[in-house]
Structures are given as C-alpha cells and as structure tokens.
Design a protein around this nucleic acid. Structure first.
Length: 200
DNA sequence: TTCCGGATTACCT
DNA sequence: GGTAATCCGGAAA
C-alpha cells in the first residue's frame, strides 16, 4: 500500500483532514520491527484556537507545528508523556491534527514490549485494547520519540500513513478531551462504535 | 525569577 | 472515581 502523498495533506482544511485521517493506517518501520494501526480517533487544533500550541508565537517547542503539511509534531505533556500530531496546513500557519487512538494491526508483540518497558513493568500484560487507546499510549506502542520524529516528514520517513482500506464507517463529532480553553469546540472525531477509541 | 497548569496515564480506594 | 507522578513553557511580577 502506497503512503499518502503531499497532495493529500494539502488538499483538506485541518478539520476535514482530521476526519479524512480516520480509517487510514499509521505505520512505523523501525529497526526493532514494524508496527501499524488504523487511526480511529483524532482532534483538530487550529490557528486562533487558544488550545492550539501554535496560538502564541513560534518557539523551539512548537516549531515543528509551523512546518509544511505532512510534517510530524511531537511534544512532551505532563512532564512524562508524548503526543503526536500531523501538521495540516501550509508552512508558517501552525495547524495540526492530534492522533488520539489506533486500532493495532501489525507488530502487536513489539507494541506490548514497548508499552511494558515504559511502564513500571508491574502489569506486563496488556489487552489489545489498552495498547493504543490514548495519545500517549500509541506514541509508546509505535516507538515514536521526540528526538527521532519531531519535525520529520510523513512523506519520506520510516513513519508514514497509508489510505483507508475501507471507509464504511460513521464519524462521530464531539468536543476535545483534556483541555479547558476552547473546550466547547466540536473538534474531536472518531469512528462510531470502534472499541479502540480512548473515550466515548 | 517564581508560579501554575497542562492535547495523560496508571494505580489505588 | 480520585489522584500522584513529573517537568516544561508561558504569564505574572
């Protein structure tokens, strides 16, 4: 399956892209092995939106968000976790789509290994559902890192996205999770009925 | 320079 | 269902 190209990322406004990414497959071909999962939940962060990291001026932390469409923006949250975003607008604008959950499709064992490593290793057993049903969880499972992927491009890196295998699902639109500013905006999207979504 | 809250998760009650 | 863990960036002063 061919990876999505620049045209795809340029074609849609951020809110549309957030919906279009549902059903697509996120793939990481790392030295340790290949992991992949269907994107089942996303959130949009727009220019002029106070919850968006690019709302204020460009800094070292949010610089990748101002990159060209198809770039990857990774950041540290709560001092201990990372989240991954897909830059969704032209260079300099600063809009992105947060990937919140995946339905694992490949490299399940490697995902379990990575998740157990990061955790206190107390419960070394994960259900399939627990592997990627949250933005920081999927970053762990996929082996995405700040140093390795922030500012990289989905067009020419080991981390990339392929088109949907099928699109016979309904999209639920709702408000974003875990924010206070812009909490009422309907910028969260997920595949209706999918059990790998982080929260209903 | 100090202070505060955050696009979260895991563990405990 | 509540909260500790843990640290960086932005705002306040």
């Amino acid at each position: 399956m061919q990876r999505l190209d620049l045209q795809f990322y340029q074609k849609y406004e951020t809110l549309s892209l957030a919906k279009q990414l549902l059903g697509c497959e996120l793939i990481h071909e790392s030295p340790e092995g290949r992991t992949a999962g269907i994107i089942v939940e996303t959130e949009a962060y727009l220019t002029g939106d106070p919850a968006c990291h690019a709302y204020r001026k460009k800094t070292l932390r949010n610089a990748a968000m101002f990159g060209p469409a198809g770039s990857v923006y990774v950041y540290l949250i709560y001092g201990m976790y990372h989240c991954v975003n897909i830059v969704s607008a032209e260079e300099g604008k600063g809009e992105a789509v947060l990937i919140r959950a995946l339905e694992p499709t490949d490299g399940i064992e490697l995902m379990e290994l990575r998740r157990a490593e990061r955790k206190g290793q107390k419960s070394s057993s994960f259900s399939l559902r627990e592997l990627c049903n949250g933005p920081a969880k999927l970053v762990q499972a996929m082996g995405i890192t700040l140093a390795g992927h922030n500012g990289s491009s989905l067009l020419d890196d080991a981390l990339y996205i392929t088109p949907p295998q099928q699109a016979d699902f309904e999209v639920v639109t709702t408000t974003r999770i875990g924010i206070t500013q812009g909490a009422d905006l309907p910028y969260r999207f997920y595949i209706k009925g999918n059990r790998f979504v982080s929260k209903k």
